[in-house]
Each structure stands twice: as C-alpha cells, then as structure tokens.
Design a protein around this nucleic acid. Structure first.
Lengths: 351, 351
DNA sequence: CTGAAAGCGCTAACAT
DNA sequence: ATGTTAGCGCTTTCAG
C-alpha cells in the first residue's frame, strides 16, 4: 500500500492565505485574538482547499482527540446482539451520543469491556492509551467499579457514570429511576390497585434499589403495605419467572406487578398465562424497559421509558464542556416517562 | 484541563529494555530482523510497563490508524433508531464488525452520511481526512454511489461495497440475495405453491433486482409463471400495502407472497387480515428481513436471514488484509438462510 | 540485525 | 494580533 499522507494540511492553508500556521490553527479552533478580516481570509482558504484538520495530529500535539468513548459490558452487549430480541439500548445510546457528538465536531466510539475479568484495568487502560478519548461514558455495571473509575480519575479523563449517585470523580447520572418507579406506581394506584408487587433487579445495580425506593415511598404515601410484595431477579427471564411465581403464589397475591426489566415483565406475563390469569383483567403489569419487544406482546405492555438517548446526549454535552467548565459533582438526572399500553387496567372488583 | 500526555511511551520501553526506539517499534509491529532473544527482552519491558502504542502517533508517522469506518445512510439509520421497532441491522453490523476488528487490534466506527446531500463528497471527505481510516465499509444505498466510490478510490483507501456487484474499485460484496430469494421460493414450491407473488424493493437498490432474479429463475425452473406476480415497493410499510393489495386484488391472486423487507411483509400481513385471509391457511408469507419484529407477529413470519454480521465480519477481514494482499475483484458473497416459522404452509386445496 | 536522524500535522509556549 | 520554535510519539528512511 502506498503510504497515505494528508492531502491538504495546515501548511497548505497557511501558504494559500499567506499567514503563519499558528493563525490558521487559531481560526480552526475558534480562538480569540484573530482579526475578523484575517479570520475571514483564512477561512476562505480553508474552504477553497477543503481543508480538514487531522485528528491524529491534533491529538499528538496535546490537544483534543474529539473522541468520546462509551464503555459497555462485553458479555451483556454481545448476548443481546446475538439473541436478536430487539433490545435497542445500544442503538439508543448511539442515537443520543452520535448526534450530540456530531453537533460539536466530536465522534463517539463504543468499547466493550469485560466485567468478569481480572484485568479490567489492563483492558480499559489499553483502550485509553490507544484512543486517548476526551471523555468516557460508563454504563452499569461499570459505573461503580472502583477499578474503572479510579483509573479514569488517575488519568484525568472526564467521565460520566450512568446509573450511579456515589460521590467521587466523574459526573454521577441517573435516568430518574426513583421518579420512574413512582410514575409506574402512581399509575397503578390511580387505577385503583392497592396490592402492587415489585420485581426488582440485582443488588449489584444501584438503580435496582432506587426503583424499589420509588415504589415503596409511593406505596407508603398512599397508605398501602409493601411487605412481602418485593422479589429480586437478575433482570433475566428465568429469574423473572421465579419472582412472579412467588408473588402470585402468596396468600394474598398482588393485583398488579411492576417488573424492573422487559425480560422479567415477559416472564411475568408468561407466568400469569400459565396460571390462567388474564392481563390486564386479573393482573396489571408494568415493564421497566420500553424496548421494542414490549409493544408486540399480547397485550402490549405499559412501560417506563428509560431516557437512554437523552441521558447519553446530556453526558456527551457535559463531557465536552468539561474542557472549560468543571463537571457537576451533584447527580444529574434525566427522568423517564410512562408509556401506557394495554397491560394495565382497573383491578377486577371481586365480590 | 491539564494537558494529557501519554503515560508510558516507546521511549520508556526502549530505555527500560536498553535498546533503541527502532527495535521496540519493530517488536510492536512484528517486523522481521529482530533476534528472538531481543524480541523477548523488549516484550518483557512492554508487559512490565503496560505499554500500549498511541494510535494517533502511529497514524501520524504514516502508519496505520487501526480504524475501519462503516458508512451508513443518515436518514434511514436515525429513522430506525427513533422508530424503535426493533430493526437491528446496526447492531448486527457492530456485532460482526467490532468483534472481528478487535481480533486484529482494529476498531470500528460508524459514520452517518446523508445521501440526499449535494455535498456527500465534502461530508465524507471530511470524515476521511479527520479519521484517516484504514478501510471503509459502504452499505446500500451508498455502495454504488460513484461520488463516494470515486473519492475512496482517489484517496487509495480500501473499501467494501455491500450490496454491489459492479466492477470498479473496492470489493463488491453481496449477502446472497439471488440465492436467498431462491431459498424462499423453493420453500414455497416444496409446500405446493405455484402462484407465488413477489414484492420487490426499489430500483435504486441493485439487490432488489437480484432478489427478483432469484425468484423468477426458480419459478421458471419449476415451470411456473411470474407474469403479473411482481410488484415494487420502497421497503416501507405503505408501499407494501399498495403492492399487496394489487397482488391480492388480481383475478388469479397468488397463494403465497415473498416480501423484500420486514415492513412490506407486515404490510402484507395487515392487508391479508383486512381481506379476511388467514395466514398461513389462505396465504403463505415470507419476509426478507429476519429482524426481531417478525418473530412477534401473529403468526411469526418465515423469513430469509440476511447474514449482516457475517458479511461485515468478512469485509473487515478483507480490508485489513488489503494492506498486504490486493482486494478481490470478483464479488464476494456471504449467503443467508431461511428461517421457517408459522407464516408458511401448504396451500389450501380448494375444490 | 540494530541504531541514529528526519519528519508526519498540529498546537502550546513564547516571542514580537 | 500575529509569527517562531519546539516538541507530541511513532515510523520511516538510511547508516552502521
């Protein structure tokens, strides 16, 4: 292969405009101390020659890489891709991330990192060294991994922790889990439900507990009990079956269930069917992922829409701004909303 | 922000191993002319210090960027992401692309480019100048855009054209459209269908015609007519409705229909329902996208599975190899397979 | 087989 | 407000 060089460089522009490299550089980076006339002249040359700065060179000289790196869990991501069940959180991340990056001349890359790996540090360290991103977005369950957050802090790379409220380096961000659980619970209460069960996620995910909190508070505010109405799953289908069975097997079973993931909601739907319960007549059901799949079930599920795209978009903005303005230390929350579909209804008035 | 420098550079390694920068460079790049003992010593230092080469620096000095760029249509991609209907071709691209890239120490990035834009060249040119990818993957409808292929050829960047068989620069690649259409048609013929309708994609996509060809040939081989049994759509739902209505409105309507996209298949399902036709009893239906959505319809659709992941994976391999070995000039085909579900059955024997 | 020197395109720091 | 200088980390010449 012929060695590929930049076709038109800052030198060409400088020569064409009859100015120094520095001046061109200043114009590119929108720096002050350039007279409008000068700026215009340089810009004209840039346009004329179709000059675009080489990111590699910019990065080399100690400037930005114009790159935001989103770190996802390797196994979970690949499993979702292979399963082809329509879970679209990567797409939603790209939607929010790429578009917002593009607005600022940045680009977003996805990196898959293995959680269950002893050498998370090595893996991530290698990615950081090779790519030198200007910012990193951490998604659960990486957001609260001290090995990861420590490494990022040490290297002075701004980062966002989605699904984490802990103090420490990086912006903590949430998708409004407590609020969202409230929305779901309120919706059911308004329909007349009093015994509302909750299938939570695993403890490794802080957000699992925030959701429980939102539900429990709302129930308490309304004067309803929650004892024995909460079961934990691992977000997966099997665990959802177990949890749903437990809840529905109780002496006084709930008339409605909120499940913390689409898979657990589907499992609950399945369990209900097995038990001869009609949804929503005998059991109302709310899912906590508004993934495409929940619109194709019978009935389509009422679901909390986690604002993935908006959150990543916000994260990108904060990270890019971090160059000039320190990151917020207080948690930044982008709340979701409830999408009402056919799986929720008034409880059947028995007797 | 503090100016971030590479923490451990090739210099450190050289110093630690007591050799020149050159030797380290040779080891990194697996070049010949390094004595095994030497190589081992250097490698030990690399491991000890946790050294990872800076891609920016490598690119700067005229070497590789270790980057493969996948170009997707901006509008189509964003529309799919926003619609949240579970179309997962971006995910499948990432699955095949990222994993294969990772195997070779490369990374994949997605770039959205606007087709309907007069300045495709500028847009793409800017991306190429900024990123300097070692290879580019073109997806339809970009694969046969001469503005794009010309630019890539001019810059000497190896590229793959998915969904193109035309001669010219870059590897032409197909997902076996003709073959796949054959599979679908054969399946229906084996079930006993003789009048098999086909809803094709728009002419801008060459693959639309390859699929027609596969269907027509197979029909001809079996001695069945195809006249009046082919309608074109634009891959979207509305166009699918129109096409299905036309086919089913005919004097002698087909007993089976192959639709060239999931949306057009769903539309056909809808039209059949409206007309009181039961699928698969009165009408067999095959979709040409095995996207998640087609598993959740009633009935679940028999569908051709386009090997997106495998094709992108293959493309990446070819592009990476292009550094040493010229790209194939003959079309490279990765064929799909048929996934049989509930929407196909023996035709009802009337009378 | 190994090393020394030159330069990739750009920007920070320091002049002017 | 603009220009000059000195690298950034690496690979490519070209010498030994």
């Amino acid at each position: 292969m012929a060695r590929r060089r930049q076709s038109v460089t800052i030198k060409h522009v400088a020569a064409d405009a009859g100015v120094s490299l520095q001046t061109v550089s200043r114009v590119i980076n929108n720096e002050p101390n350039v007279r409008p006339a000068m700026k215009e002249r340089v810009q004209a040359s840039i346009d004329k020659l179709g000059y675009v700065p080489s990111i590699a060179a910019q990065r080399m000289s100690g400037s930005r890489s114009y790159l935001i790196l989103a770190i996802n869990d390797r196994d979970l991501t690949i499993a979702d891709w292979r399963a082809r069940e329509g879970r679209d959180w990567v797409d939603q991340m790209l939607l929010g991330g790429m578009l917002t990056c593009a607005e600022h001349g940045y680009r977003m890359m996805i990196e898959l990192v293995d959680t269950h790996n002893d050498h998370v540090e090595r893996e991530l360290g290698a990615a950081l060294a090779a790519l030198q991103p200007d910012g990193v977005i951490l998604t659960p369950p990486h957001s609260e991994n001290p090995l990861i957050t420590g490494l990022l802090a040490e290297r002075g790379i701004p980062f966002a922790r989605i699904g984490s409220k802990q103090e420490g380096p990086g912006v903590p961000m949430t998708m409004g889990d407590t609020h969202n659980a409230r929305l779901a619970t309120d919706h059911l209460i308004e329909l007349g439900h009093e015994r509302i069960g909750f299938i939570a996620g695993p403890q490794e995910f802080s957000l699992a507990d925030w959701r429980i909190e939102g539900w429990r508070q709302t129930m308490a505010d309304a004067g309803f009990v929650t004892d024995g109405l909460c079961e934990r799953g691992d977000f997966g289908f099997e665990s959802g079956m177990a949890a749903a069975n437990k809840l529905l097997h109780a002496a006084e079973p709930p008339t409605a269930i909120i499940a913390s993931s689409d898979q657990m909601a589907l499992a609950t739907l399945e369990v209900a069917r097995t038990r001869g319960l009609d949804v929503p007549r005998d059991l109302s059901l709310v899912s906590f992922d508004n993934s495409p799949i929940v619109r194709f079930t019978q009935p389509a599920l009422t679901a909390v829409d986690q604002p993935i795209s908006a959150t990543i978009s916000r994260a990108v903005e904060l990270l890019i701004a971090a160059r000039k303005k320190a990151l917020p230390t207080e948690p930044v929350s982008v709340v979701g909303e409830l999408v009402v579909r056919g799986s929720t209804a008034r409880p059947e008035t028995r007797g």
